[in-house]
Nucleic acid binder design. Sequence first.
DNA 1: AGTGATCAGATTTTT
DNA 2: TCTGATCACT
Length: 767
Amino acid sequence: MENILQELNDKQREAVIKTEGPLMVVAGAGSGKTRVLTYRIAYLLQNGVDPFHILSLTFTNKAAREMKGRIGKLVGWSGARSLWMGTFHSIFARILRIESNHLGFPSNFTIYDTDDSKSLMKSIVKSQNLDPKIYLASFVLSRISSAKNNLISVKAYKENTELTNQDKSTGRPQIAMLYELYQRKLFQSAAMDFDDLLFKINVLFRDHPSVLHKYQQKFKYILVDEYQDTNFSQYLIVKKLAANNENVCVVGDDAQSIYAFRGANIENIINFQKDYPSLVTVKLEQNYRSTQNIVNAANTVIHNNKSQIFKKVWTENPIGEKIKLLRASSDREEGNMVAHQIFQDHRNEQVALDAFAVLYRTNAQSRSIEEALRKLNLPYRIFGGLSFYKRKEIKDLLAYFRLSINLTDEEALKRIINYPARGIGKTTLDKIQIASAKNAIPIWEVLMQINDLSLEINSGTRNRLKEFANMISSFRAQMSKLNAYDLAQEIGKSTGLLSELYKDKTPEGVGRFENIEELMSGIKEFVESEVTETELHEQKLRTLDEYMQDIALLTDADENDKDDKPKVSLMTIHQAKGLEFPFVHIVGVEENLFPSMMSLQSRADLEEERRLFYVALTRAERKVSISYAETRYKWGKLDFCEPSRFIDEIEEQYMDMPRKPNFTFDNRSKTMGGGIRIKARTVSEKPKRTSYKKIESTTSNVVNRPTSSHQASNPDDIQIGMQVEHQRFGKGEVLQMEGVGSNKKAKVKFKDGTKQLILRFARLRVV
DNA sequence: AGTGATCAGATTTTT
DNA sequence: TCTGATCACT
C-alpha cells in the first residue's frame, strides 16, 4: 500500500500529496478525477489523519459509497467507514439534525421533496385567493429556490427591489409574500425543503459561531467533488468550514458544468481563486477513458463555448472508430437503429450489455428506445423517470411513517387522512384546516382537541377522526420499541393499505403491491444491515425514524439494481454525469430538443447545453453514435425536426456520416438530407462547413466497420463451412474460427492457399 | 362522501 | 400521451 503513489501520473500525484493548504484540481473528462480524490483520502489516512476529521462532499450518495469502498480497499475498512462522505444535502441534513435545537426545529424534522413543496405551495396560493394559473406552484417555487440558493431570506427578498420589480413586471407581485407563508408553514410543519438544508446550515453557522467552530475543528480536511456544480449557498458553507485550516481541495471541470439551471454557479471557481491567494491549481489533462477520436471530437465541440478555463485534454489511447451519425425518419426508427447497433456490437465485440448506454436529453425520449430494445429482447435498466420513491403507493406508505414520526407534517397528514378511504372527506378536511388556521395550531392538534373545539362535524365523522388519530398515536408509541421492519408491517396492515393494494388484481395494481413489497424488503435490509459496534453493544434497534432519515435524500442514482444481469443503461445525460461506458448512443440530437428549446434565448443557456453535449460525448470509452430523427412525437403530436447544430460543430474528420441502405458515393451529397442540414445551419448561424464529400478520404487511419460499398458480411454471420469471398484472395471456404469480438479470426482456404484472417479487417462476404 | 368521467396542462435537466 | 384536478352524479 505504500505504492499507492506509483499508480498515479505526475499531475495526479501532485494533487494527492499536496494535503495542506488550498488546492484546486481542474480535471478534464476522464482524467482520473475520482482516482485523485480516492487516493488523496487514502494518503491522508495513511499519514495518520483521523477519518473523523475528513469531510468529503460528493455529487451522489452512490459516488460516496463507491469511493468509500475503494478507500477501504486501499487502506482498510475501519478507517474508511468513519469518513464523513456524502452529498452536501445528506451531510448537512445530518448536522442539522444534531444541531436542530439552535434553529428551533426538532431533530426529527421532515425533509419535503419537490412534490410536497409543490402541494404545499398550491394550498398556500389557494388560501390567498390568488390565481393558480398565474401563481403556478412550480414557477413560484423556482423563484424561491433560486433565492435560497443565493442566501436571500424572506426579509432580504422583500427588500430586494430588483427581485420584487421582476415579480411585478411578470404580473406576480405576491411572490415575496408567498415565500414568507411558505417558510412559515414549513417551520410549523417541522419540515425543510432541499434548499433549506443548505440555507439553514448557513444560518446556523452565521448565528452560532461556537457551532461553526466545532465543525471547523472537526473537519480539518475538506474535499469537494464536482465543484463546478455547486451553488452560492454551498460555496459559502465550504468557505466557512475551511476558514480555520484552509485545507480544502476542490475538484471540478468547468466544461462539465451542467446544473446552472438549478443555481450552480461557475463563479464559485473564480471566487475560490480569489479567496485563497496561496491557492495551488493542478490541471489534469490526460484522458484515460476515451479514444483519441472521441477526445478530439469533444474538444472541437467545447471550443465553441466562449467562457472556459483553458485546458487541453489529450489522450494516448488508440485512435479508435469514428463517431457514427445515424439519421432516422422517426423517433421509432431511431430506437430501432440504436437497438440494432447495440445488438450487433454486443454480438460482434462479445461485450456484455452493461457496456452500452443510451443517453438522451429528456426522460420522455426513453420510450421509443425501450420499445426497440424490448423487440430485440435486450434487457435494459432505465434510470430516473418516475423514481421509486415518487410512486404513489410508496409515498402513501411513507406518509404514514412520516406522520408517525413528525405529527406536524401536514403534507403527510393530508395525503393519508382519507387513504385508504375511511369516510373523512374534503368537507371535513376543510373544516379542520380552517380550525387549524383560526387557532394557530397544527392540524394534528385539531384532531387531538376535536371535542373541545366547537366544530360542525357530526359524531360519526368525529369518531373516525379520533380513530385515525389513535391509530397514528399507537404507531408513534411503538416507534422506539419495534424495529423498522416490524413497525412498517404493522402500519401497512392496520391502516388497511396493504389489503387495499392486494385487492387490486389489475396488472398495475399488482405492480403497486410489488413495489410495496420491495419497499418492505428494503426496510428489512436496513434493519439487518450492519450496525456499528457500539450500537451492537447497546442492542440498539434500527427504528423506522432512522430508516426515514436514511432514505430521505436517496435518489434513483443511488439505487443498486437488484438483479445483477448486465443490462443496457438508459438515462438522461444529467444522470450520466460521472459515469463511463464503452459504447454510448446519444439520441435525439435535434434542434429544439438538444439544445432544448428553452435554452435558445440566451448564450449562457446555450453554452450549458453544449457542455451537456460535451458530457455526453466524453462518457464514451470506445464508440459513440449520435442519432437524430426527422420526425418525432411530442405531446402526442408529430413534430418535424432538424439535426442539432451540435452535430455540425464536430469536425467532420471525426465523423462517419449516415447513409441509406443502398447507397452509392455519387448521390451521397444529394440523398443524405442536405436540404435539412442547410436549414439547420441557418438556424445555428454557423459559418458554412465544407462539403460532406471529403469524408471518405479521411477514414484511412481509422478502424472502420466495413462499408456498404464492399458488401461485406457481418463477422458474426460467418460460420465454419461457409463459402466466402475476399476482395483480394477471391472465393474460399471457412475451415476454422477462433477468438472473440474484435479479435475473431477465421482460417479460410482460398485457391492460392489457406490464410488466417482477422475478420475485423478482412471484410469477408458470405457467398 | 365516494366514484367515475371529462378536460386541461405538461416536458428540460434534479439534490 | 399521460397525469391530475375538477365536476356531476349517486
